[in-house]
């Protein structure tokens, strides 16, 4: 065993290499990543998000959306994510600079949400969908988030933020309306902010989808 010192060094490097590669490197490198200046608008990339959207991220976390919805577009051609319309390009590390928690997700029990704000820009649609998913998509298996909404009697003028066009067993009766809580409003603001349709130099859009 006269090569013992050599074996030691080899094992030393392998044993700790994973920690360097998967913990230290991302912490020091990806953790210090900065937004890029956006030459077209004078802003930054990825664009800054509103305070309400940041609050909405907390609702996203506490409701556990991540267990069914991913937020990542994988590379082409190995995956068909781009061809299936999840986004115009692969998502890269810089896309997640605005996120306190990067909800990359590991399941697509529901559709990917990387670009849901671009696919469904309508606030009322999101409220309808969260209140009772099967009224907008009858085959959906998403749970209802009715507990984020309040059904109340209309007194005088209807509330300006009342959800429009609700159907189904939980729809408000005549003279009643459904209004979103602050949490529901924040969650929808967060969903609408999910748009990765800006251009980043490190992730060019593929020429053929």
């Amino acid at each position: 065993m006269n090569k013992l010192p050599l074996i030691f060094v080899g094992i030393f490097l392998t044993f700790t290499s994973a920690w360097i590669g998967l913990v230290a490197y991302p912490t020091l490198n990806l953790g210090e990543m900065q937004p890029l200046p956006d030459e077209e608008t004078g802003g930054v990339l990825p664009p800054t998000t509103s305070g309400l959207a940041v609050a909405g991220q907390k609702v996203y976390a506490s409701s556990g959306c991540v267990y069914c919805h991913s937020q990542q577009v994988r590379w082409s051609p190995l995956s068909t994510d781009i061809a299936k319309g999840l986004g115009p390009r692969q998502t890269v590390a810089r896309d997640y600079l605005r996120e306190k928690v990067a909800f990359l997700g590991t399941m697509r029990t529901g559709p990917d949400l990387s670009n849901i704000g671009a696919r469904q820009p309508d606030t009322n649609w999101h409220h309808q969908h969260l209140f009772e998913p099967r009224t907008v998509t009858d085959w959906s298996i998403m749970p209802s988030y009715r507990y984020l909404y309040k059904t109340q009697k209309i007194e005088g003028q209807p509330s300006s933020d009342a959800v429009q066009g609700l159907r189904g067993p939980h729809a408000p009766k005549l003279g009643y309306e459904v209004v979103p809580s602050e949490e529901a409003k924040a969650l929808v603001a967060y969903l609408l902010s999910l748009k990765k349709n800006y251009k980043l130099p490190e992730s060019p859009e593929p020429s053929e989808p």
Binding site: F12, F15, T16, W19, V23, A24
Partner: peptide
């Protein structure tokens, strides 16, 4: 502080494995 922690951790872990 994170970087210092990581470097200390590296020597601690690597050292104990060795």
């Amino acid at each position: 502080a994170g970087a210092i922690l990581l470097i200390l951790g590296f020597f601690f872990l690597g050292g104990s494995a060795l």
